[in-house]
Amino acid sequence: MNNKLDGFRHFCRRNSLFVIGSISVILILFTMTVGPSLCTHDPNAVKYSEKCISPCAEYPFGTDFSGRCVLCRVIYGAHISIGVALVVVVVGAFIGVTVGIVAGYAGGAVDSILMRLVEIMLSFPGTIFALAVLGTLGNGTINQIIALTVVRWAHYARLARGETLTVMNSDYIQAAQAIGNSRLRIIVSYIFPNIIGQIIVIATLSIGPVILAGAALSYLGLGAQIPSPEWGLMINGGKEYIRQAPWITLAPGMAAVLTVFAFNLLGEGIGDMIDPRLKEKAEAD
């Protein structure tokens, strides 16, 4: 028992970034799921009599220009903002990894075609490309997800291809071929497990930027629509009251900053933890 505790302490000390990051992310996800049921106010209940109240015991983050509780709205908004980002990153990473592995493994013409496509995607500035996609598809949360995924997948594809090429050069792939593994088996049980670590790190690190990009689109009025409590939309709504009631913009803004920070910590932590080079170094000594 004592031994286990010691082991845990050692783990925490060695992977402090990971531990702090995962605790903050868990806290955020917990607030996101449990928070709404604890909210005493309806996030969309308009009450003009109580508009722009500064933070107090009743409304910890104050109320906005329509008298809605800012705290409740930030908590409800987390669903949309973080949810969108998670879906975008998971779907984008899935598409990207598939394309990247296929390109890296097949090589030759397949590789060239796929990678030119990826390069074309990457050569557009991300937000403007997303704007263009939204412009064609129309507004709404689903379309926002599609637009952001279209922008993101190419990043993961390029990374996955690079990692695949590295793994392909290792001796164990040759050994696997020599002993008679099929191509599919080599991809599934050799290449995928050996590149997934890097992908997870980059995917976690990119959750932050995707949240911000989603907020930016909503801010511009192209994502979630009024009266949704999406963070970007809230900031947009509050910007006219920034002198009298700065908390309307500050609260969702800070929420976004903290969430991005937490996911980045987690990403860095996972990276430190699984980076084989660091580990090997420690063990070689």
Binding site: S170, D171, Y172, A175, S189, N194
Partner: peptide, 15 residues
């Protein structure tokens, strides 16, 4: 069948 030079690098490190 082939026996390789670097025995420590020929196995899948995740298996």
């Amino acid at each position: 069948q082939i026996v390789f030079q670097n025995p420590q690098q020929i196995f899948n490190p995740r298996m």
